[in-house]
Design a protein around this nucleic acid. Structure first.
Lengths: 199, 199
DNA sequence: CCTACCGATCGGTAGG
DNA sequence: CCTACCGATCGGTAGG
């Protein structure tokens, strides 16, 4: 190889991304300064700009890594053996587990999309659409009769993501009900909505 | 009376609140400056500070007027004649109609709560809890057997608000499905969740 | 001529 | 109700 990067280049970059996710989640993208991100990483602002060309590029990294993991997790769950109902439950649980394990990233994804420049926002939105399409396909597998009713399928999908995407605003991991139970409840409610729409 | 206010004091103040809601909704609280609010009202920053002591007080006014209207609308719908199922549907429709008619206010309420100082945030959260309690009471009316299971009732309530509170991120008023249909779907899905939890 | 980094400071704009 | 400002802090970049 011609030139080498620091041996721990990727490690440092990930650390920056993680601290930025924490601060953007807590204070908002505009409310968290690059100086705060640097301080959290116990380094200088200049070092941050060595790893990322701009504050918005850090935001993109936070969202992109998270949404890609969500897509992979949902795809894997939706491809498990079992009928459509079981695969929907598996996908719901997989997503909720990821939300819980990456709460800061999820908050940033939900709240700061408009802070991205058009081109980058489009890329993230594209991945989010892949996620919607996975659920849409499961709804269709559940009720092939809804083939012609795309608007209703999309509405059901959005109501489903409404239920789970904002769990972070109220869910208590130390409470009486755990995250996978909530995922199962949301999946069951979606199934009921699908039955009703089809019947 | 000792001193008079301008005859159109309330009208001007409401106009400021409305323009602020629009700008806070579009750019976020931190992303919208007081100068922008003043420009939108075709007046000066100083005039804004004549009507409101701080930028955060405008934010509080936006949230407070909206959440109080939501509580009134939901209470009225929940008190209509009919069984619990019908009253739940009426409450869902009343909320969704208000969300649609006050989209900017709803967006601000959803996204900017943490920008309020503690005391004011507590006041808004108190009103939101009234809203939760209205739905909780309807769930209980639907299934008295859930009396002892407050955690599950609260989870169902939060899943319900998850469905309708973030409609503004995806709902298309010119689309094939109208807002009250979405409200009915959400209400039906909540009922299914309640039945399942009780059975 | 590269990379990895530092302390200091740039031009503008924020709320008040 | 305006212009003229303030102390502070923003995202980003300079030289070395």
């Amino acid at each position: 190889m011609a030139r080498t990067q620091s041996a721990d280049y990727a490690v440092r970059r990930d650390a920056i991304t993680r601290e930025a996710a924490r601060l953007y989640a807590r204070h908002g993208f505009l409310g968290a300064s690059v100086a705060q991100v640097a301080a959290a990483c116990e380094t200088s602002k200049s070092l941050i700009y060595h790893y990322y060309p701009s504050k918005e590029d850090i935001l993109f990294a936070v969202m992109d890594t998270h949404v890609q993991r969500l897509v992979r997790a949902a795809r894997r769950a939706a491809a498990e053996p079992g009928d459509a109902r079981a695969r929907l439950g598996a996908a719901a649980r997989a997503l909720v587990v990821r939300y819980e394990g990456a709460g800061d990233y999820q908050r940033v994804l939900m709240n700061e999309l408009r802070r991205l420049p058009d081109e980058k926002r489009t890329e993230i939105v594209g991945h989010q659409r892949e996620l919607l399409d996975i659920v849409d396909a499961l709804i269709l597998a559940l009720k092939p009769g809804l083939e012609a009713d795309k608007p209703r399928r999309r509405t059901l999908t959005m109501l489903f993501f409404g239920m789970i995407n904002w769990m972070h605003t109220w869910f208590d991991p130390d409470g009486a009900i755990d995250a996978t139970d909530v995922a199962d409840m949301a999946a069951a409610m979606l199934v009921a909505g699908v039955e009703q729409a089809a019947g």
